[in-house]
Amino acid sequence: KTTLGMALLKLQTSEGLIHFEDQRIDCMNQNQFRPLRREMQIVFQDPFGSLSPRMTVAEIVGEGLDIHKLATEENREQMIISALNDVGLDPDCRHRYPHEFSGGQRQRISIARALALKPKLIVLDEPTSALDRTVQSQIIDLLRTLQKKYNLSYIFISHDLAVVKAMSHRILVMQAGEIVEQGDTHQIFDQPREEYTQELINA
C-alpha cells in the first residue's frame, strides 16, 4: 500500500498509467513533474523520523515554500503561522525543534508542512498508527476539518478499519499488493463481496 502511494507521487519507479486531474503523469520526467509536486503531498507514518531534528518547526514548514518559491520575504512568516494555526499548534512554537513535541504534535507539524503548499492531494500513509487512540481521534477530526476547509483529496492508507471507515468515501482493499475489492464505504462495510474483505471486517 505504501509502495502504491509512493508510486502515485513518482517517488518510486513503477509501471502503468497514472492520471492526475485528467493529465497523464507517469510518462513525465522529474523536471516535467516538478510544477505538479507541490499539488501532491505526503504525510508519513512516523512523525519523528520524517522531521529533521536539526531544523526548527518554522524551517520544516517553510522549506517547501522556499523550494517552490511560493512565498516572498514579507509573507513567508505569515504563511508558516497560518499553516500552524490550521493544524491547531501555537505559532509561537515555530522556533522549537521536533524532539520538544509529543507524537501527536509532531504529526500536526508534518500535516502543516504538507498543507503550507496548498496541495490538491495529500497521501496519508498510516498517519495515526504510531499514536494512541485519543490522539488518533484528534488527528482524524483535524484531517476531516482540513478536507472540508480546503476541498482536499486524500489517499488514506491504513490497516485500522475503524479509521478507514471514519475517513473514506471510497475504499480499495489490497492483499499481497493486489486490489481485491473496491467500492464506496457503505458497500465495502455492509456488503463485502470478497472473502478476504469479510475476514478483515470480522477480525
Rank of each mutant, 00 (worst) to 15 (best):
M28E: 06
N29K: 12
M28R: 08
I80C: 03
D66V: 14
S102N: 14
V61L: 01
N75I: 09
I80G: 00
S52Q: 11
P91V: 13
L65D: 07
E73D: 14
G5S: 12
Q45I: 12
R37F: 08
M40V: 07
K69S: 12
R38Y: 01
G62S: 04
D26M: 07
R24E: 15
R24K: 15
R24M: 14
Q45V: 12
D86W: 01
D26A: 09
N29Q: 12
E59L: 06
I80N: 00
L84F: 03
L84I: 02
A7M: 09
A83L: 00
E73C: 08
E100G: 12
L8C: 12
L51N: 02
D22I: 10
F44S: 03
I18D: 01
D22L: 13
I42N: 02
G5Y: 09
R96L: 13
G16D: 10
Q32V: 04
I42V: 13
E39R: 15
V43I: 09
V57C: 06
L9C: 11
D66F: 11
F33M: 13
G49Q: 00
P47N: 09
Y97E: 01
C93Y: 11
D90H: 03
Q32P: 00
I60T: 10
M40T: 05
A83W: 00
M55R: 09
D86N: 11
G16K: 13
H68P: 08
F20S: 08
S102W: 13
T56S: 14
N85C: 04
V61G: 00
N85Q: 07
M79Y: 06
D90F: 06
P47K: 07
K69M: 09
I25G: 04
E77D: 15
H95T: 15
L51C: 04
V87Q: 05
R24S: 14
R94N: 07
G49M: 01
E74A: 08
P47D: 08
H68L: 04
L11P: 02
Q12L: 13
S50H: 07
L11E: 07
P91L: 12
R24C: 14
R76P: 03
G49H: 00
K10M: 08
G88L: 02
R38Q: 10
E63G: 00
T56R: 12
H68M: 05
C27H: 15
L70G: 09
L17P: 03
G64K: 05
D26V: 06
H95R: 15
I42G: 03
Q41P: 04
G103H: 14
E59Q: 13
L84E: 00
F20T: 10
F101Y: 13
D86I: 03
R54F: 11
I42Q: 03
N31Y: 04
D46H: 05
F44P: 01
L89I: 03
N29D: 15
S102D: 14
I81T: 06
K10Y: 12
S50F: 07
R96F: 10
E77I: 12
G62Y: 00
Q78H: 06
H99R: 14
E59F: 04
E59A: 09
D26R: 08
E15C: 14
N75K: 02
G5F: 10
D22Y: 12
V57Q: 04
G49I: 02
C93Q: 09
R37K: 15
E39L: 15
R37E: 10
G49E: 00
K69F: 04
V43A: 02
M6T: 11
F33H: 11
E74T: 06
L9P: 08
I18W: 03
C93N: 10
M79Q: 13
